[in-house]
Design a binder for these strands. Structure first.
Lengths: 237, 237
DNA sequence: GGGCAAAATTGATCTGGGTCAACTGGCTTT
DNA sequence: AAAGCCAGTTGACCCAGATCAATTTTGCCC
């Protein structure tokens, strides 16, 4: 799928009132730095299903998610897919050592990112250790999440995987749209399956099972947590 | 298991001719900095099976592995274990945001580490962005490995998991003891199983299967790759 | 070097989740 | 409003890998 790559405008005029100002990589910058930083990034919009970058592509840019949800995934040569994470507003994408992206990233629904050309961004970091520290923090946080996910993939049952996913996804949305028992699921069942190391049928069956037990209600575009405690019990071990 | 915690001596006198000088976190330091750095760390030895730190322990130190192999793992409340990685000389352990370790670390065989108290180490980093950059590189490398491992855990068969593990482990040893078709496996079958999200029986059977096919030979304390191409074919997908 | 305990292998059987296939219900298109 | 099309659900069956249960092998300590 070809990217539309519609540059709305240089993010320059909007950094200070940017939606992710407080949580993203730029949280570490003061007002003066922010003004300089503004010239580096530009807002780019991607439509639903578009690929922002692909695994093995040479890294030319970094991305700060401003709006929407992305799936981050790796493919095996025979087509099997593992989703390694979902990116939300505030997430920073594109860091790597090899000079190539080590996963692919698609927009799920419409997505707006703040795109930075790699070279000037790296130059900007150069003498701003607090920005580097912020990026390092984000990497360490992701590493911790990645390890949690390894436990889920390697050692948990289908029921536990699904229950853990629902709770974890709800938790991630708290800072974006507040705490709620109504959990929107913008990704498809196939995406959930590929994230949890299951098949689409097993995910669907597990949702139905949770609903029949009165733990959740399957609603259009998501689920409603009817009995969070029951779901937590399923997720626990 | 209680740690012996035998401090051999301040690593001070040995940094410049340290085995991991070139590959570890300290690779980023120049000779003058190294002299100052020496006072921060001390060599500590752990016997086989000893726990260096546990998940949820408050982080008081960082560790630079100098010698030996460690298993890094997370436990579920019911005892299921997922090994999230093996640490080798040059690996840097202990970074986290929460102030607590997010996995446990045991010595497999004897292990020597260079231990740094958290506070002075953080102070040392403070005005040395190149050291911070080095730590960030290590974190990014680990993150990439973690994502690869998610694919393995979520989407690969037992045969593929074992074959991929043998090749990956051999590859990691190259920089430490040179390329060889003889691959030492200091960890137990149970460790391998918990790393690959399998049972010990499946690991054992898969080893035997590979041996019967003439791909490997099971030798004391490891395996010998008789037919690396055959193993690669099994690992590919 | 004999006696044990732990680690590893092997065999027999079972089952959670995969596979294959049919069906249902929204949306879009005309 | 009929036709077509995905995404999702459900059912029937199967199999890779788990579980349970013996051995066998290895290492270790008197």
């Amino acid at each position: 799928m070809k990217p539309s790559m519609v540059t709305i405008e240089p993010s320059g005029h909007f950094c200070s009132d940017c939606a992710v100002r407080g949580s993203a990589v730029c949280a570490s910058l003061d007002a003066a730095e922010l003004r300089e930083f503004e010239h580096l990034g530009r807002r780019v919009h991607f439509d639903a299903g578009e690929t922002v970058f692909s695994e093995e592509d040479i890294t030319t840019s970094f991305y700060n998610v401003l709006e929407g949800v992305m799936r981050l995934y790796k493919l095996l040569p025979d087509g099997r897919r593992q989703i390694v994470g979902f990116a939300l507003p505030g997430d920073f994408l594109g860091m790597n050592l090899s000079g190539r992206h080590n996963f692919s990233a698609d927009a799920i629904g419409g997505v707006t990112v703040c795109q930075f050309a790699k070279v000037p961004f790296n130059r900007f970091i150069e003498d701003r250790p607090h920005l580097l520290r912020r990026i390092n923090e984000l990497a360490i946080r992701e590493l911790s999440q990645a390890r949690d996910h390894m436990v889920l993939l390697g050692r948990r049952s289908a029921d536990e995987k699904v229950a853990t996913f629902l709770l974890g996804w709800r938790e991630r949305l708290v800072s974006l749209e507040g705490a709620s028992n109504t959990v929107p699921l913008p990704m498809s069942r196939q995406d959930i399956a590929d994230y949890l190391g299951l098949t689409i049928e097993t995910v669907s069956r597990t949702f139905t099972k949770l609903e029949r037990r009165g733990a959740i209600e399957i609603i259009h575009g998501g689920i409603s947590l009817l009995d969070p405690v029951k779901v937590e019990t399923l997720a626990a071990p």
